[in-house]
């Protein structure tokens, strides 16, 4: 963009920077608070004394995590799940988005597929029937029970389909002239030009799979098979719900031992680190995204 030298433009720049930086800080606060909590003593946390600076600084929590075998087992399961899901999701997304980006004239039956996709996004049979299917496929307690039910990401397919529609026709036609078949066109023309969008849906896939805890609760019948977020979820106990619906001395005592808030905060911090590592890797695609040419019809 051309540098604008006027004073008003300069003021505008300062205002924009201020707003954006302020927003950044506001978003950083809760995580900062959680990091501070993870480095504080549990008494200080119970007394609600931790703000943005750790109180009674300790690294005990992180030592405990290092020794928590289940934490790392679950961590590994989550990594595996994210990796498998990413591959399957991305392959299916581009495979489906490309034909769907064609008009019905070119791809007969396109609308039927589209309606089936939309319908499946809106309606679901619910927990029990899906469980029965997964169980009858003998997928319970396997990594596939976490991967396969979410293989088709309809939202992402529609998103990429729309990016594909925006790809200049001339590029495709040129490839056809060169004698490329649809698969080659997809791989050589569409995918390279849609990298920012593909990086976006890849991020959705990674984040969605990493964060999902519910399927772990249903399809894994043993804690040792839980993915990380399910494991963390199983440790965050809602004492209020417990008291309201009835409790006894033993269960309350056991729960209080678990509700180790500084330790749980540390677990959250560690669980976010992979996402912090992944993000910058994908970020470069949507900041220096390959620019779609100006050729428009």
């Amino acid at each position: 963009m051309v540098e604008s030298k006027s004073i008003s433009a300069r003021i505008g720049r300062i205002v924009i920077h201020t707003i954006v930086i302020t927003l950044g800080l506001i978003c950083l606060l809760p995580l900062w608070n959680i990091v501070a909590t993870s480095f504080s003593s549990s008494e200080a946390v119970t007394a609600n004394a931790v703000g943005l600076i750790p109180v009674n600084f300790t690294t005990e929590t992180y030592k405990m995590i290092m020794e928590d075998a289940q934490f790392w087992r679950s961590f590994g399961i989550s990594v595996q799940r994210v990796f498998l899901s990413l591959i399957i999701n991305m392959v299916l997304i581009v495979l489906m988005a490309y034909p769907l980006s064609k008009s019905t004239r070119v791809f007969k039956g396109r609308n039927i597929y589209m309606n089936l996709l939309i319908f499946s996004m809106l309606f679901s049979g619910g927990m029990i029937p899906t469980y029965l299917v997964v169980k009858n496929l003998n997928l319970l307690n396997t990594i596939w029970s976490l991967v396969l039910p979410g293989a088709v990401q309809v939202f992402s397919v529609i998103l990429i389909m729309n990016f594909f529609i925006g790809v200049p026709k001339s590029l495709e036609e040129a490839a056809i002239m060169d004698g490329a078949n649809p698969l080659q066109i997809l791989v050589k023309v569409f995918i390279p030009i849609s990298l920012p969008a593909l990086a976006t849906v890849a991020l959705f896939s990674i984040v969605g799979n990493w964060n999902d805890f519910f399927s772990g609760l249903i399809y894994m019948t043993k804690v040792s098979n839980y993915p990380l977020m399910t494991y963390i979820q199983s440790l965050s106990i809602n004492i209020e719900e417990m008291l309201k619906s009835g409790a006894n001395a033993n269960s309350l005592e056991n729960m209080m031992e678990v509700s180790n808030k500084n330790l749980n905060a540390a677990k959250i911090v560690v669980s976010i680190i992979p996402l912090l590592v992944i993000y910058p890797l994908l970020q470069k695609y949507f900041i220096h995204g390959i620019v779609v040419g100006s050729v428009k019809e």
Partner: peptide, 15 residues
């Protein structure tokens, strides 16, 4: 006091 004021049983009767 807890905002739910009453619990279902004795064990949950804190606050």
């Amino acid at each position: 006091f807890a905002h739910w004021l009453n619990a279902g049983d004795y064990g949950g009767s804190a606050l």
